[in-house]
Design a protein around this nucleic acid. Structure first.
Lengths: 169, 169, 169, 169
DNA sequence: TTTT
DNA sequence: TTTT
């Protein structure tokens, strides 16, 4: 069809640590579980009400997957930009099932760490200090310069080497 | 949770005419089936490849639902802005199922008619003059300054094959 | 023209406290100064580089303006969704000038407080505890119920009354 | 700053043909002039009113610039995703001026041709077969799986008056 | 399962 | 002028 756009923008918190697995091709794939929620006052009772929506996010971009694995943790707040994708699978009983996910694919998608988490308020088990703040999936080379970035850091560079050197801030 | 955002932006074509039903409360609810697709050249074979994604859209906003019912037709190209929502239901065998939809709710969401269709190529039954081109769900009164536009209709057909067979829901 | 979309999405920090003024009509208007920045490693020198972009935001929606005035402060991180608008003005020398702003207008636009600021890490002068986390501009009545929200809180209600009661979380 | 997002999404029509120039580095740069508009009924008079907003778009991505030059024409409807950028320049009298543009930069940004223009109403000189319908700026190699689509052209004309007179830059 |  |  072309001429189409398929975009999801989420700001939410991770419900658990990232789940890492390896595709048959050997590439790393990371799954995130992200919560968004809305609150409102019930029109009748006046009570405060809340509804939480859970989103399944899949990161196929290796660069982003790598950093997600290392720096994201349960509770962190993230900005995610991806595409909607529904895949079919078969359950144990042989029945067709569908699951809809937000995909950060090979060439598209963003992940921006939004909370600074300085002081490590939560995440008792967290062993990280300064997680990268933005990971622009679409990058091209890897060593390429940037005229910009999604309007975010964009400058994360070079896996390998001293961690502190990798973190762009 | 607050501090969260849950937004979907789609530009795609309707796979079939809008489906209209009435909620128990009497309000009109419209379902749309929207296709987005992407094409690329296979890195190995060099062949052009295409992947179509089907999205289920639900319009709870009465104003938007009303216009969707009257002016949208199979093949029309639309811009949709809504939220992701996954709901649980039980199938005939008593099993839990989940369906993820893009929701244009009471207060939020947009529907913009994108193709002008001047010339009225299809839509044999179209008996309308000036359908709104943009329907801002968030409106409030009804007497407020609006962003409705002036009309059009549209025509598009499945690129080969019966479209109905391709839609997974 | 219709069939058009004009949308800006920003996540950034306030460069200073909100500026409040009153329109001739008596309605409150709030201006925000928001910084976004991107960092990258220079391709040649390998040095880390940064570029900050400053955005002028105008809030015409009274509800949102009211809360912005009360709860936003220099340094806070916000999510803003508005429209691009360029207006012409005349400087002292009589020359035409143009200024482009991100507008949260009467019916459209969002403001979401993204950092929790619990503990008042910065903002020494800050006298606020629990700022509202999301302000959905499009609301309708004011006392209306919500089926959703922009995928955010959406439930901010009732100016006037005890502050704690107004804050939906 | 990192942790920030700077995104503009437009759907609008080109006010004139793309303007192509070459940077000192030899890379091609394309400027677009895009109109978005909104219409509403005046709350008092009930009359239909319209407001058109003109956006200046700059394409630094060579791939996208190339295609924009070849396939975009005055009147075509496009989806554009870029960043806000304000640059300072000095006018003839030596005064500082600022211009805000929507930038599709080296690594980020999208351009999607939205109208199909089957029938080739205008574009008399069109000698192309299958112009890409979608141009994802972030691409990397050039041999990578792409999302280009198949072609079209387009025609649209200013609703009354000379369009060139309406464009403020 | 998150967050407030 | 923010933030990291």
């Amino acid at each position: 069809m072309a001429g189409s756009v398929n975009k999801v923008i989420l700001i939410g918190n991770l419900g658990k640590d990232p789940e890492v697995r390896n595709a048959q091709t050997g590439t790393k794939i990371v799954n995130l579980t992200v919560a968004t929620s809305e609150t409102w006052n019930d029109r009748n009772s006046g009570e405060k009400r809340e509804r939480t929506e859970w989103h399944r996010v899949v990161i196929f971009n290796e660069r982003v997957a790598d950093v997600a694995e290392r720096f994201l943790r349960k509770g962190r707040k993230v900005y995610i930009e991806g595409q909607l994708q529904t895949r079919k699978w078969t359950d144990q009983s042989g029945q067709e099932r569908f699951t809809t996910e937000v995909v950060i694919d090979r060439f598209r998608g963003d992940l921006v760490l939004i909370d600074s988490n300085r002081g490590g308020e939560s995440d008792a088990g967290g062993g990280y200090d300064s997680p990268p703040r933005q990971l622009n999936a679409p990058r091209g080379g890897g060593n390429a310069p940037s005229r910009g970035g999604s309007g975010g850091s964009g400058g994360w560079d070079a896996p390998g080497g001293d961690l502190d050197d990798e973190i762009p801030f």
